[in-house]
Design a protein around this nucleic acid. Structure first.
Lengths: 182, 182
DNA sequence: ACCTGAACACCGTTCAAGT
DNA sequence: ACCTGAACACCGTTCAAGT
């Protein structure tokens, strides 16, 4: 428990995510983060603008956890893997993940994540004109489901039931997307 | 601006929603609600358990705003109207609405809202065994979109672009649901 | 350049006291 | 039965001061 000398933005965001995962996003206070890093709360303001900036940073850091699926897989497989990766990230960070739906899609991390989906869709045969719209539809559906399942909305449902729901959702997306896959 | 003598749970939730709509959910404090009602913050605790209970109540009150569509309309029309009603409610309450995705679906208001969709789906020909799953899929998709569009995720998009996105989403749902409509 | 001490305004909540 | 005053622990944030 020696105090780490390197306190920078990345370390602050890492500590913040850990606190939110362990004790919930409500326990994510400037003081808790400072304690975790062996520093006073005021020291954080050198590296983050304020609490909202810190929170935005934490939410955005989730995007980098959604691993790019292998480009070699067929379209179906890529959709499947992306869904599982997103659901797994949601489960790892149940109180922070739902905030992704509120994150402006113009941040660097959001752009990177979108670029990966664009590539998948292009290889699947989606026309250039439809690319952005299709990406918005898919990500909205998948994020909405993942947020719902980790944040209490489906609290009464077993993991097995949620998996079956998600499989049905994936089928629905596949059918719904058929016209775009030309 | 005479202080209303009737301070009960309903009045508290109404005042809370008004404050959140005007100044954002972050401005929804016990003190702000008390001020709005001409009372001290401590008086609220007679009618709500605590801040979280108040917030839950406010979120749940949104569900009652999603008007039941007319039973006479054909299935397509009902889906359309439900979507518009939900998006309109989201626009009226942009900072509170996204919390719907976190509200346990076991509250009375949530049950009522679901019952309405069940009836629609049954009339559309969805088998009894598929009813609950189909409802979960549809509401997840529509809530996810509505939350996204009012909470900054699509901040860069015009109202026209969002309407077009939603139309595409509705088409996608229709195609995806076809197998269930037997 | 980076962290700290002291201070401020605000927040949720409790409890005994008032009516 | 219902509201209030006083009080507490905690929160985000600023700023001058330390190293």
């Amino acid at each position: 428990m020696a105090r780490p000398r390197q306190i920078d933005r990345a370390a602050i965001l890492r500590a913040s995510l850990a606190i939110a995962d362990e004790r919930g996003v409500d326990a994510l206070t400037m003081q808790a983060v400072a304690d975790h890093l062996g520093v006073t709360p005021m020291a954080l303001y050198r590296h983050v603008e304020n609490k909202q900036d810190l929170l935005d940073g934490v939410v955005e850091s989730l995007l980098d956890e959604i691993a790019p699926s292998s480009d070699d897989d067929p379209w179906d497989e890529q959709l499947s893997k992306m869904g599982q990766a997103i659901r797994a990230a949601a489960r790892r960070h149940p109180t922070v993940f739902p905030l992704l739906l509120q994150l402006p899609a113009t941040t660097p991390g959001a752009r990177r994540a979108r670029a990966r989906v664009y590539r998948s869709l292009r290889r699947a045969g989606v026309a250039a004109d439809d690319l952005e719209r299709v990406e918005r539809l898919i990500s909205t559906i998948v994020l909405g489901f993942a947020a719902s399942e980790v944040s209490g909305r489906f609290r009464a449902h077993s993991r097995k039931a949620l998996d079956a729901d998600y499989a049905a959702l994936e089928d629905l997306i596949r059918r719904g997307l058929a016209p775009y896959l030309g």
